[in-house]
């Protein structure tokens, strides 16, 4: 018969150190868990496809003579200017892809913690609520910036490389700031939007549906209300329209809707404010007895 061995505890002799980035382990876990989902990996890889297409566009624009047979009559589409970058960052397709990335990869950021009672484990450690939320936001930042800011900057760099000159940079010296600025606005909004909905339910499927449907239905609502009232103000109901409105402003393009861009900023900021309020109230270390 095997001997039962009792094991005692051995002290670790290491030194306790203060973490400078206490939110990072939360982010790391969030990213790790997202990549464990097979569907998400496939989708996330697909989210780079628009960047590849736009990169090809830049290459072709610099070799128009070689690709004349392909772009006959469509030269305007591959005219590389701020509108080209705005189109990359704010077209319907890329925004939809971002929503899908959020649905599959980030819906469970808080709802899974609520479902698994993980908050009490987290908050019994040297982790503040703001560290926790920052860690969760950083997951959204990671996924969105990697399909917006990074490709946006690379497209800019490749434009210079393919052109073999700094003329483009000198023509639009502010464009890099626009790419960075809009990517950050987009990411910040999506981070608040995702965390708001993720904190509303313990059921991740329900959160996934909410993330998708609110985005889609806000646009449908805009269409319906616009049909009824015939006023561009109804664009303020659409998340997509507001994001595109802000994009046009940041890239110094004509606004797609005849509404002051300030209102679109205000709508996006209101969603972020609501999210901050809900997160402040919902994120607690313990379950509340009702």
């Amino acid at each position: 018969m095997a001997t039962v061995r009792e094991k005692g505890y051995y002290h670790w002799e290491g030194r306790l150190t203060e973490s400078r980035f206490p939110w990072w382990p939360i982010t790391r876990t969030g990213i790790l868990l997202a990549f464990k989902k097979r569907g998400f990996r496939f989708l996330f890889a697909g989210a780079f496809l628009p960047a590849v297409v736009f990169l090809a566009g830049i290459y072709i624009s610099e070799r128009l003579e070689d690709f004349k047979f392909m772009v006959r009559g469509s030269e305007r589409l591959i005219n590389i200017n701020p509108a080209y970058f705005k189109t990359y960052l704010a077209n319907d397709g890329i925004l939809f892809l971002m929503i899908m990335v959020l649905v599959l990869g980030c819906a469970g950021l808080i709802s899974d913690d609520l479902k698994h009672n993980s908050l009490q484990i987290y908050f019994s450690r040297p982790l503040r609520k703001q560290d926790y939320l920052l860690g969760k936001m950083a997951v959204v930042f990671f996924f969105i910036l990697i399909v917006t800011l990074i490709p946006g900057l690379l497209l800019f760099v490749f434009k210079l490389v393919f052109a073999g000159s700094f003329k483009f940079f000198l023509d639009y010296p502010w464009l890099i700031l626009s790419v960075i600025g809009y990517s950050l606005i987009l990411t910040l909004f999506f981070a608040f939007y995702t965390l708001l909905l993720s904190s509303l339910s313990k059921n991740t499927r329900y959160v996934m549906i909410l993330l998708f449907m609110i985005y889609i239905f806000s646009d449908i609502l805009y269409g319906i209300l616009n049909g009824i009232f015939r006023t561009p103000l109804m664009a303020l109901f659409s998340i997509k329209a507001n994001l595109q409105q802000v994009a046009a402003f940041v890239f110094a393009e004509k606004l797609p809707h005849a509404v002051p861009v300030f209102w679109s900023f205000l709508v996006l900021a209101a969603v972020c404010g609501l999210s901050a309020l809900v997160l402040h109230r919902k994120i607690r270390g313990v379950e509340v007895i009702r």
Partner: peptide, 22 residues
């Protein structure tokens, strides 16, 4: 129970230990 079902015991423990800044 207070853990994600999809992580391993090792990932669970190391993830939480990182919160201490080790």
């Amino acid at each position: 129970d207070a853990f994600y079902e999809d992580v391993t015991g090792w990932e669970f423990l190391t993830g939480l230990l990182r919160l201490y800044g080790f």
